[in-house]
Structures are given as C-alpha cells and as structure tokens.
Design a protein around this nucleic acid. Structure first.
Lengths: 180, 180
DNA sequence: ATATTACCGTAACACTTGTTATTCTAATCT
DNA sequence: AGATTAGAATAACAAGTGTTACGGTAATAT
C-alpha cells in the first residue's frame, strides 16, 4: 500500500547533532544535513515541521549528552563541586561547539545553567548537601563562588586564552574550596 | 573636476560599530549598514576593499572602546585586580554584544584576552605590581585565580544566569582576594 | 500482477548574503 | 556655461538560506 521510509528521524537527528559537535550549531542547515545523511532536503521536512523544530531537538540532545558526559566522568575530585567542575571544564575543552550552544547561546528555548547542571538527578543539590555534611557553613554561597570560578575556566578554554589539564583543574578547585 | 564625497569612512565605521553594540556583530551586513547610513552599498566598497576589512576595523574600534571604558570606570576597588574586574564585569553586563565580540568570538584576527586587558598602558602589569607591593607572594598566580573568577562572572551575566551589581561585584572580589 | 499511496528527488520560489557592472549625478576646472 | 570625472544609486550575479510544489518510485494490499 505504501512505500517504506529510507531516511529515519534518527538518521536526521543524529547527523544534525554530530554536525553541531564537529562544525557548530550554525552549520546545521537543511541542505548540509541532507548532504551528510545522503538524501534530499525532503525527508527532513517530512519528519520535522521546520528547521526550528529540528534545532530544538538538537538542543535537547545536547542537554542529554552533557548530562551523560557528567555521569560517565571519572570521580577523582576530593572536595564538593570538584567533580562537577572538572567535568564541566573538560566538556568545554573537548566539546567546544556543544558548550557554546548549551551555556553561551541566546536561544529562546535555552535552559538556565542551573537547570542543565542539576538535571534529573539533582547533581548540584547533591554536591551542596555534601558540602553541608562536610561542615561548610554556607554551601549555597560556596557553590556560587566555586561556580563563577569553574565557569570562568571553562569559557577561557573556549577561546584558547587559558587551557587547563584535568590535573591542574583538580588542584585549582581543591585550593579554591579550601580558601572558602 | 570631480564630485565631493557625501558618505565618509567615519559615517560607515561609526554606524557599523553602533550596530555591533546594539544588534550584534552578525548583523553588520553591507545592506544593513548602508540602510542605517542612508546610502546604497556602493560607498562602503569605495572606502573598504570588502566587508572583511570593515569588520576588522569594527573589531579594532571595539578594542579601543573597551580600553576607554576601563580608563573612565570609577576606581572604587580596594584590592589589586578589583578595579579591572569590576570594569570587566560591568562591561559584560552593559555591552553584551561588544563583550561577545572581544572575549568570546573566534575571529582569526582576535587578540588574546591578556593583550586587550593589558593594553598600551600595562593595566594588568600595574595591578600585578600593586599586589606585589601589598605583600602578595605570588602575584601572577593571584591574577590568574582572580581572573578565572572575574571572567566567570562576566560570562555568566551574558546569558542572564547570574547578574551582579557593581556593589556585589566589589564585595565578591575583595573576599576573593583576601582568600588567596 | 496490479493498483494504491507514502516517500523522496528535482526543481523552484522568495529571501538574504557579498560583490560588481552600469548608469546617472553633481562638483569642479576650464 | 560646459566638459570632465569621481561618487553614488540601481540593478544584477552568484551563492546561500528555509520552504514548498510536483512528479517519479517503490513497497504493500488486493
């Protein structure tokens, strides 16, 4: 009765996401995605109402990607917020295009930094509780202070103005926590 | 013998720069600049070889603008790096588009953060010397630590994730310096 | 086997970009 | 006043964008 689809939603979304990682969000155009998938632009508009819808999905996928990245990141930090910070800074270094999209873009659908960081699992709250349990008197304030520091290091690595290795990051964050 | 020019280089550059401030660097296109100046695109290409050349001039003007901004910023800070930091964070808050262009873009002609900050007058070195004179044992390390913090606050205000007033900034920077 | 019909490629539309060729305009020298 | 000529406006080209109309293709129900 009908023809079978040869280009799936997965094909499109995965390629669009890979292009975002490799070439940046701005390069995710209908024709470029189609070329990478190996089809015309038509299947894109069968699956998605328009490009904005696809872009939205790419953004959502990037959020999940970051959260998975954090889940899988080795937990070598010894002080509260250092695991979160090391992962975040490494993510900025290794996934510059995704970092820009998630944490520096101006999309209307953009989630807040806290929303992404804390996620489903309450990663931030977990660290705040840890700080509290370790005797930190103002864990929220500590998070804020640490996070300015962490975000600064991450954004600095984007432009190549300051690139930290994981080991340097670790040391710096532990010092910073101790100073608080 | 010849006709007098009615559209000057100044007209073009000033409008292109104002557009960068108000609407962002990406909106500086030949037609949009022309529309704002009130002429056709022709005079632009008489004055500038191509748009890249104009963009380069806009960038240079932005560098000078930031340095003037810092020169004129009230010096209310009490610890080394706090005047620089307060100005930088205020600049990010007040001039988001220029901040993005100067400190987060990926232009080939982009100057390093240090190059812009230190400038002709050696602003960074001046602060480092001040720290040294005030008994700081590792002023370079202190600068680096303070700057991660400052850059973090600035970049955070861009996305609206964390907006500091000048007074809050001042307090935070003084605490941060004391902690070092 | 054939009719049906969702899927996909081709091609086009309307718009934006940088850039350039052409034509008109106006200021100055004679 | 009229010729000269640089400046500017108009219009176009080529390339890129999102999106859509159309027509062929292929998989399935009959």
């Amino acid at each position: 009765m009908a023809r079978k689809e040869s280009v799936t939603m997965q094909d499109i979304l995965e390629n669009a996401f890979a292009m975002t990682r490799e070439e940046g969000f701005a390069n995710v155009t209908a024709r470029k995605v189609a070329a990478r998938v190996g089809c015309s632009t038509q299947p894109i508009f069968r699956v998605y109402k328009n490009m904005e819808e696809l872009w939205g999905e790419v953004y959502e996928k990037a959020v999940l990607f970051f959260q998975d990245y954090y889940d899988l990141f080795p937990r070598t930090g010894t002080v509260p917020f250092s695991n979160l910070g090391m992962a975040y800074i490494a993510f900025a270094r290794e996934e510059k295009n995704l970092f820009r999209l998630l944490f520096l873009s101006e999309l209307p659908e953009k989630k807040s930094l806290y929303e992404i960081l804390n996620g489903e699992k309450g990663n931030v709250l977990f660290e705040i509780n840890k700080a509290s349990a370790m005797g930190c008197s103002n864990p929220q304030g500590m998070f804020m202070r640490m996070w300015l520091f962490i975000h600064g290091a991450a954004c600095m690595s984007l432009t190549g103005d300051y690139d930290l290795t994981d080991a340097e990051t670790k040391k710096l964050l532990e010092q910073e926590y101790a100073n608080g």
